[in-house]
Amino acid sequence: MNQWLLAIIAVVVAPFIGGILAGIDRKISARLQGRWGPPIVQPFYDFFKLLGKSKIAVSRVQLVWLYGYLFFMITSLVLLVLQQDILLLVFMLGFAGICFVLAGFSCKSPYSHFGANRELLQMLSYEPVLLLMALAIYAQNGSFMISEIFKNNTPLIVPLWPIFIALIYVLTIKLRKSPFDISTSHHAHQELVKGIMTEFSGPYYALVLLTEWYEIVLLLGLVSLFWANPLWVGIIIALAAFVLEMFIDNIAARMTAGWMVKVSWAVGLILGVLNLAYLYLKKGVL
């Protein structure tokens, strides 16, 4: 019963945290660009305004995938909160991402397709890093369960710092920040219409925003696992990483999709593999 309660609280509270983080993101970005910026609660205003718009869509199939995106993202978050299997969490996050890609593919729109294809390449870029992270956590703890991370007194970041750096890299891709805002961008100036978001409108776009808020919370939750004891240190690290992403976003320009795959495979894999090799040597498996 306790677990159910925890899951429900997480599902209810996460969008508020995510929305406020999105608001902070816009505020800080605006200040970095020399603007005043909208109020912190602006994302909520936007969200409710979008909900009130009339329902318009380009395809029925698209809606199924948009709901899939939301539901599987929530599932991943619940898996995190209930301290379940991290490998399964990565797979569920992958399913959520695939649902989003398929929503982009589910209409005959050139812009949406550009975005969807690029989103797919983004997934190709970060998925191996996340899987390597799960393997490395297993190598360290002897278990894929997140609950085991909390039992360990040594923070994960100590033996797993290269993977942590790779995860920050993934965070840039996942939060759609420059230089990896390939599939769709929060800034209009470097975009083909609106990328994969082109054909989502009104209440359905609100759905996507809601899912993104869940995603922010989930990703920062993953980052904070790297210092799980005490957790408040981990949360501070995660928030610092979030602010770092905003700086990166504002000093970098968008790169091409091919460059992204190459660089993230090179950086992510080299860091991940070296890290794993170190853990293997330490445990004497090799």
């Binding site: 992958g94 294809n117 797919l120």
Partner: peptide, 17 residues
């Protein structure tokens, strides 16, 4: 694996309104 399956599924589902 994810890439080639999603690509194919995407082609199937692309529909007019």
């Amino acid at each position: 694996t994810i890439v080639f399956w999603a690509k194919w599924l995407g082609r199937l589902l692309q529909v007019l309104p």
